[in-house]
Design a protein around this nucleic acid. Sequence first.
DNA 1: CTCATGTGCAACCTAATGTTGCAGGAGGAA
DNA 2: TTCCTCCTGCAACATTAGGTTGCACATGAG
Lengths: 116, 116
Amino acid sequence: MTPKQMSKVDDELWSAIGDPTRRQMLDLLLADSGGTATSLGQQLPVTRQAVAKHLAVLDRVGLVNATAAGREKRYHVDAAQLAKAAAQLASVGSAWDARMQRIKQLAESMQRAQKK
Amino acid sequence: MTPKQMSKVDDELWSAIGDPTRRQMLDLLLADSGGTATSLGQQLPVTRQAVAKHLAVLDRVGLVNATAAGREKRYHVDAAQLAKAAAQLASVGSAWDARMQRIKQLAESMQRAQKK
DNA sequence: CTCATGTGCAACCTAATGTTGCAGGAGGAA
DNA sequence: TTCCTCCTGCAACATTAGGTTGCACATGAG
């Protein structure tokens, strides 16, 4: 079992959710879907243009979908892709936990051997 | 309940584990503790100096500890801090899951109301 | 039609990541 | 000790991501 190798898309997915501003944007879009670059920019400490760039990144990795509505462009979270991202977070976290658990057990067994 | 606000240290912890090279380094150090900047650099697609910079970042947020051993400097993972980082990953992931779950349920209840 | 508002594009700034190059310090061999 | 090797640390530089300002364009409201 070697789940060490992540594909390129997965790596891009991770870097997409690695940015704190983008995570905040996802939170906002989850709370109130259909936000635009302008509406999100008003709720964030960055300009509309910065938000637009982040939306482009999130769109490229499929975490959000754009819907043209007249002169404005509404964005919605793609639940499936976000679930995939959440799974990656959980995967990495539990991999670390498992590794630490093994190390802890190894240390204990060495201690037992020492005692004997 | 508004666990939205993360402290500054927590945010730095996130950005520390946000970098793919640093996550790889943590994996390597978990697999074989006591690695040096040079030994890690040989196992990674970056130079020793780049690794040293990453180690400085990880050291600053407390994810690793340095141990001077003669002319070389061995690094070890701080299990407590890594566990904290893993908990943050899990927290964000489950928050998303919960949010999506609520949206899904809302959609279903609206559908039921429509049908009636 | 006119005007306000949302969007898109380009230039620029700063910080992070990575590189090359070089100086210094600790261990081992003659 | 002296010399040589290897690991570390620091500085200068290139590249890219995140952010800002400024401007041109399009579309809906009046």
